[in-house]
Design a protein around this nucleic acid. Structure first.
Lengths: 192, 192
DNA sequence: ACTGTAGCGGAGGCTACCCTCCACTTCAAA
DNA sequence: TTTGAAGTGGAGGGTAGCCTCCGCTACAGT
């Protein structure tokens, strides 16, 4: 219900500190965590995160009392960015707008993949992010569907899961990933 | 080079013991490991695997000196089964044969997903499995492609990665998974 | 039935990581 | 500039999982 005005990161339990040095540490931790999770998955060592950020382990725990806080903060940050991109592409042609946004979505799945295994579907933050993302990307989908570019028998949810699955897989090279995404999108476009 | 006559499990480093009780333990461990990996991913506790199999931890280590041995054995077992299915469906219609086999392949990706993160691409067993699987499923693909059922600009490798990605994703219900696989396969079928 | 040996279980040392606690440091408001 | 509150780092106790070692068990060949 708040998702259309606030960025989702606003409802995350952790709070960016006011003091300058503390705020810098907070940002460094968030960046380090994103990196570590993308690299080692959800099980990444928190001591390693602190090390990457160049801060003590206590500083990590003060800002993010549990692993879950860290997940939610990283995730919300990423979703905010995704929503911003949706606004940016809104004025392009229906199909072009949708696929441009999906391009950014592919990058997002890297973070998501690690976090998804740890954040159950009932997490308040997770649900808010999902809603927020649907509000941002959904209109792009609807517009493409109404323009007859997307077949009528699938939902936005279907499309996201399809893209998410394909892009979350290992590929020897990015060209193959793009080729296969293209093939699958041909299926999405097929007229019925 | 051996893949067309031997099952790949034959080249796995671990060996099924001769003695009756030991062989039973070996099988129990393999089944327990498959279960544990599917449930908890590649990081599953080996002590938990032994517990599930109802044997001591030492018995696990005697049969599978390292975690990697266990991975490779479980994986090879699964691939053998997949090859067997390919033989079974060989006499059906081209497209039907291919999609039936892909149906079994979907189940295989559950095991694969956990193991893939831990087994690097240079693993001898991994390569043998891959080759074996290509020899089994490849002809089904080629036949469908020559029959004009599959577009000409993709490879068997492309198809497997696509299916693997989609089926490895979490879905609230199986119907949605199947629907989306169907959409993607429409893209594979699209005539060019 | 006997017996040697392959196979067994689990205790225990080791390591990596979790998380708390507290003496020290740094910021920013007055 | 002072000062105290907010913030900091890392030592260290606790836990979970890894893997080895060794005295015991039970299979299978004679």
């Amino acid at each position: 219900m708040t998702a259309d005005t606030f960025p989702v990161s606003a409802i995350v339990a952790s709070q960016r500190p006011h003091r300058k040095d503390a705020a810098r540490n907070y940002d460094a931790l968030l960046a380090a965590a994103r990196e570590a999770f993308a690299e080692n998955g959800a099980e990444a060592s928190l001591e390693d995160v602190a090390r990457r950020a160049g801060v003590g382990i206590a500083t990590l725990y003060r800002n993010f009392p549990t692993r879950r806080h860290l997940f939610e903060s990283v995730y919300a940050d990423e979703v905010d960015d995704l929503c911003r991109v949706a606004r940016e592409v809104a004025d392009r042609e229906p199909w072009e707008a949708l696929t441009s946004w999906l391009g950014r979505f592919v990058a997002y799945t890297v973070t998501k993949r690690a976090i998804r295994e740890a954040l159950d579907n009932e997490s308040e933050v997770f649900l808010a992010c999902r809603e927020s993302m649907f509000q941002a990307g959904g209109p792009l989908f609807d517009r493409a569907q109404q323009a007859g570019e997307v077949r009528g028998d699938i939902s936005f949810d279907d499309l996201l899961r399809m893209v998410s699955g394909i892009s979350g897989t290992y590929f020897p090279d990015d060209a193959q990933r793009d080729r296969i995404l293209g093939v699958a999108l041909d299926g999405v476009r097929a007229n019925r």
